[in-house]
């Protein structure tokens, strides 16, 4: 193996190591991925019951309901994204790694998305049924939520990295992330609205994809900075 090849192999190694370690931890604490799912199912049930049988109203509000609830579910779980690593010193080891910190942080955030976003996406058909949306557009909704929860995880992780050293950074985390979430919410609910009405999907979908890619590529840089600051304290 040549030098650069070995370098590539080991950067992939660090990505895989961090990703699978985090997944292992998440699966040992089942609450970390079951809680967001339960939260979203419960909240949507309550909304559906609260709005009542007026299916027109439910249909009109359902995109924003789904999005707001997905956002809150992700936000609730974000608080713990770096918390346990900060508390037990793993974060220091991560920052002192000789390997690419960018990939390590990317892997951590992707693992978080895997356990919070993906269950929500898988539950989409159920969610659409509860809100009276036709199951036919569940695939489109699932795609929108897949991209959307990804954006929420990546942007929220910036806030999580900045607040991890504070004892209770929950509120500050929400305050920091909310303004950054606005574009995702606007285009995300527009996308679901378009899907429900059978309008062309490309405009809002391409915005979502663009936001997702930008968040995935750029947010690790900010997260690294945030984590450095938090460890220094």
């Amino acid at each position: 193996m040549s030098g650069t090849e070995r370098e590539h192999a080991s950067s992939f190694g660090v990505f895989a190591a961090v990703f699978f370690r985090d997944l292992t931890i998440y699966f040992r604490y089942r609450g970390s991925w079951i809680n967001p799912l339960f939260f979203i199912l419960m909240a949507i049930t309550l909304f559906a019951l609260g709005i009542g049988a007026d299916s027109k109203a439910v249909l009109a509000y359902s995109p924003s309901i789904i999005w707001v609830i997905a956002l809150l579910a992700v936000l609730l779980s974000l608080d713990s994204l770096f918390k346990s690593d900060f508390d037990d010193g793993s974060l220091e080891q991560l920052l002192l790694s000789s390997q690419s910190l960018y990939l390590a942080v990317l892997a951590k955030t992707l693992a978080h998305w895997f356990v919070t976003g993906l269950p929500i996406v898988i539950a989409t058909p159920l969610l659409s049924l509860m809100l009276g949306i036709s199951v036919d557009i569940a695939p489109q909704m699932g795609l929108g939520l897949l991209l959307g929860t990804g954006i929420l995880s990546f942007i929220g992780a910036i806030g999580a990295s900045l607040t991890v050293s504070l004892g209770s950074g929950g509120l500050l985390l929400s305050l920091l992330s909310m303004p950054l979430y606005v574009p995702a919410i606007i285009f995300g609910s527009q996308y679901i609205q378009d899907a429900i009405n059978g309008w062309p999907l490309m405009p809002s979908l391409s915005m979502l994809i663009g936001l997702f890619l930008a968040a995935m590529v750029l947010s690790p840089l900010a997260i690294i900075g945030g984590l450095r600051l938090s460890v220094e304290a």
Partner: peptide, 10 residues
């Protein structure tokens, strides 16, 4: 460090 970086669930 005095925090060892040993994850309890692993």
């Amino acid at each position: 460090g005095h925090l060892t970086g040993v994850k309890a669930s692993l």
